[in-house]
Amino acid sequence: MNHYTLWHALIGGILIGLASLLATVLSGKIPGISGVFGRLLVAATPDKAWRGIFLSGLIGGAALSFALWQSAALFRPMRPLVVMFVAGLLVGFGTRLGGGCTSGHGVCGIGMGAKDSIAATLIFVATAMVTVFIYNRMVL
């Protein structure tokens, strides 16, 4: 487990798919992380309990994995903290405006063949690639 391979990517993806399925059956909703988290911040959201517990599980599962496996714990910072702050603002605003992120649109929406999610994913992958291209060549 300590030497990262593309098998890790595939197996990790399968775990994400299974986790999303389980959360879908339990909640009756599409359990995209941005939606689960974003609605936790709205006072009027009636079903806060499962959202908080699901995200606590996510944080705990990741922390346990970081402790167990070197390949999972690998973390290479890429950007200054001020850039991380701006990135967070854009990710938060964009995902709630667009109704989903990599999990809600990318995994669940595409998994169900939803055209809007396919469009959303193509758009955010494209603008992310353009952003990386510009940042890596003009800022660095």
Binding site: S34, V86, L90, R96, G98, F124, A126, V130
Partner: peptide, 23 residues
């Protein structure tokens, strides 16, 4: 959907984090 996803992508490319990995 279009504007929001475009903004999300810019943030994702800037930081290398989407919501799940960030949490």
């Amino acid at each position: 959907l279009v504007i929001g996803s475009a903004i999300f992508g810019v943030g994702w490319g800037l930081g290398g984090f989407c919501p799940g990995p960030a949490l």
